[in-house]
Simulated assay, not measured.
Amino acid sequence: MHISLSRALGTAAVAASLTLLGAGVASAHVTVDAPGAAQGGYTVLTFKVPNESDTASTTELTVAVPNVKSVRTEPLAGWAAKINRNEKGEATSVTWTAAPGNPGIGQGQFQRFVISLGPLPKQENVSFNATQTYSDGKVVAWDQAENADGTEPDHPAPSLKLAAAAANGDDHAVGGGTTEAASDTDDTARWLGGIGLALGALGTALGLGSVIRSRKS
Rank of each mutant, 00 (worst) to 15 (best):
T73I: 14
E90G: 07
A91V: 03
N51L: 03
G78P: 07
T55V: 14
E74R: 15
K82F: 04
V44T: 15
E52M: 11
V49M: 04
L76D: 11
K82P: 01
A64I: 00
G40Q: 07
F47T: 09
T59E: 04
K69N: 13
N67K: 15
T62F: 02
G40R: 04
T58Y: 00
T43F: 04
L76W: 02
S53H: 09
W79N: 05
P66I: 01
A56P: 06
P50Y: 08
S70K: 12
A91S: 15
T62I: 07
N84L: 11
P66Q: 05
V65I: 10
E52S: 13
S57A: 13
N84A: 13
G89I: 04
K48G: 03
R72M: 11
L61G: 01
E74G: 02
R72D: 12
E74H: 14
Y42Q: 05
E60I: 00
L61V: 11
S70W: 13
L45Q: 05
F47I: 11
E74V: 15
S70E: 14
T43R: 05
V65W: 02
S70L: 15
G89F: 03
K88R: 12
A56F: 03
L76A: 13
V44R: 13
P50Q: 09
T46V: 15
A64Y: 00
G89P: 06
Q39N: 08
P50T: 08
N67L: 15
N67V: 09
I83H: 08
T58W: 00
S70V: 15
L76F: 01
S93K: 03
N67G: 02
A80I: 11
T59G: 08
T55E: 13
T55S: 14
V44H: 06
R85W: 05
I83A: 09
N84E: 15
S57H: 06
V68K: 07
P50I: 06
G41C: 11
K69W: 12
Y42E: 03
N51K: 04
Y42C: 02
E90H: 11
A81F: 06
P50C: 07
S57W: 00
K88A: 12
T55N: 09
F47C: 10
V65F: 03
T92L: 03
R72Q: 13
T58Q: 01
T46K: 15
S70P: 02
G89T: 07
K82V: 13
A91Y: 01
L45T: 01
V44N: 08
K69S: 14
N86A: 09
T73G: 10
L76N: 10
S57T: 15
N86R: 10
K69F: 12
T43H: 08
A64Q: 11
K82Y: 04
D54H: 08
I83Y: 06
N84P: 00
R85L: 06
T59Y: 00
A56R: 01
A80E: 14
V49Q: 02
G41D: 06
V68G: 10
A81D: 12
T46I: 13
E87R: 13
K88N: 14
K88S: 12
